[in-house]
Design a protein around this nucleic acid. Structure first.
Lengths: 232, 232
DNA sequence: CTCGTTTATTGATCTGGATCAAGTCATTTG
DNA sequence: CAAATGACTTGATCCAGATCAATAAACGAG
C-alpha cells in the first residue's frame, strides 16, 4: 500500500488514536484494490467479511425488496462503510456498488473484531463513529417522514452549497437518477422538483447548480440543524 | 432504588458485563422517578443530560419540523434511550414523552461518559448496543422507502405476532393514531389499511388483533429478515 | 351515571408523486 | 461517422394516500 494512502487511513478518526502496533497489525492483513465503475462490492444478506474504506471514487449503498430498490447513501473518500455489520459479525443490511472507478481498502472483519477487543482507544473511536452513523440515519429518517420531496430537494441543495462554501454554484456529484433515489423520489419528479424551485432562484444546467439567493431558498426550505447538520 | 429494579438494570446487555465497582458507581449517581402519562422527558435540540432507562410503562420518541410531527419509535421496558446523544455529548435528535404512567431511571450523562472511559467492557457493550440501534434505524428506513403503507402494516402485524408466539391473536400495545404515525401514515389511512388486510385474514376489534392465516398474510407481506428481524 | 372530550371509523374529495409514453440529447460503440 | 444506448426532460394520466367532514364509539372527570 502506498505511503500516502496508509497515512490517509491513519488520519481517519476511526484509526487516529489507536496504538501503532495495532494499526500496523490491521494494515498487514488489509489489501487495497482498484475497482471499475458499477461493481457490486457487497450484497445485502451476505456476511460482512471486510470493513471497507473508500480511498478514491465513490460508492453507492442501496437496498432491494420485492423487485424495488432504493439508494440509501453515497460514501465518499476517505471514509468507511459496513462498520456495524463488521462489529456485530452480522449480515450486511445494504449492498454496495462503485459509482465510478474507485480505490478501496479492505480490512478483514475478523481482524477488526480482534483489535477492537485489544485496543480500547480503537473501541472508543468505533463508538464515536457508530454514534455518528446512527444519528445520521435518524436525521435522514426525519427528512423522509417530515418533508415533502420539494422540501427535501431544497434542503439537499442548501447542504451541498454549504460544502462549496463561498460560491453560489456547485456541481452535483453524481447522476440525477441516483439523487432522486436518495431523496426518495422518481427521476421524473426530480426534474419537476427542480422546476418547482426556480421561483426560489435555483437554476440547473446539466449537473451544474446555481443558487441566486440563498436566503430566499432558506425561507422556503427551513433548514434545521437537527436534520441537516451532519457534523453534530 | 428497589433491589428488583437494580437487578433488572444490571441484567441489561449494556450493563451486564461491566465491573461491579463501575456499575455501583453509575447507580450511585442515578435516580429513579415515576412519571404520569404524556410528560415530555426530553426535547429535541436540548443537551442530553441523562441516559434514560425505561423500567415500566412506555415512552414515545418523536420529532417535529415546521408544524408537522412524527413518531420515530416506542421504547418499552427494560431498555435505554438517547444513548448516542449521551455518548457524543450532543443535542437530542428526538423528543421523548411518556405514553402511560412510567418508571424511568436517569443516569447523568457525564457519569456514563466517565465510566465509558474507565471500563472497556462497558465500552464494548455500548458498541454492540449502538450497532444494534444503527441497524434498527436502517431497517426502518428500508421499510419506509421500499414498501407501501399496506405492506408496512402487514409486516408490522407479523412482527408483533412473532412476539406473542403460539397465539394467533395479540393486543396492539398502544393507540392506533400512534401506530399510524410510526408507520408513516394518517389515522384515517390506518383504518382503511386494516380493512385492506381483511382479505388476508386480519381481524381487528378495538386494540385486539386476530390473524387467521399467518401463511396467507405472509404471502402478501413478504417479510424479510433484513428489514423485519430486529434481533440481527 | 352523565356530560364532554378524545379517538376511531367512514365517506367524499383532493393532491403529491408515480407511472406511462414520447421525444431530446449526449455518449458510446461498431 | 452512423447507429445504438442510456440519461434527462416533458406531458398525460393514474393512484396511493392526505385532507376535510361527519358520525360513532370510547374514555375521563365530576
Amino acid at each position: 500500500m502506498p505511503d500516502a494512502e496508509y497515512r490517509d487511513i491513519r488520519k481517519l478518526d476511526l484509526f487516529s488514536q489507536m496504538a501503532d502496533e495495532h494499526f500496523t497489525s490491521l494494515m498487514r492483513g488489509a489489501y487495497v484494490q482498484n475497482f471499475p465503475a458499477q461493481i457490486e462490492l457487497t450484497t445485502e444478506g451476505e456476511p460482512s467479511d471486510f470493513l471497507h474504506i473508500v480511498l478514491s471514487g465513490s460508492v453507492d449503498l442501496f437496498s432491494e425488496w420485492n423487485g424495488r430498490d432504493t439508494s440509501m447513501a453515497t460514501v465518499r473518500p476517505v471514509s468507511t462503510f459496513i462498520l456495524a455489520a463488521t462489529i456485530k459479525d452480522a449480515p450486511n443490511l445494504m449492498s454496495a456498488r462503485t459509482l465510478e472507478k474507485s480505490r478501496i481498502a479492505l480490512i478483514p472483519s475478523q481482524d477488526v473484531r480482534t483489535i477492537f477487543d485489544l485496543d480500547s482507544s480503537f473501541a472508543r473511536a468505533i463508538v464515536t463513529e457508530l454514534a455518528q452513523c446512527y444519528r445520521s440515519v435518524i436525521k435522514a429518517q426525519k427528512d423522509l417522514k417530515l418533508r415533502t420531496s420539494l422540501e427535501r430537494l431544497a434542503n439537499y441543495l442548501l447542504r451541498q452549497l454549504k460544502h462549496a462554501d463561498g460560491s453560489a454554484t456547485f456541481e452535483l456529484g453524481f447522476e440525477k437518477r441516483r439523487l432522486a433515489s436518495v431523496l426518495g423520489m422518481t427521476p421524473e419528479n426530480l426534474s419537476r422538483a427542480f422546476k418547482g424551485l426556480q421561483p426560489y432562484g435555483v437554476a440547473v444546467n446539466g449537473t451544474h447548480i446555481t443558487i441566486d439567493d440563498q436566503a430566499d431558498l432558506e425561507r422556503f426550505a427551513k433548514p434545521n440543524p437537527l436534520i441537516d447538520d451532519f457534523s453534530t
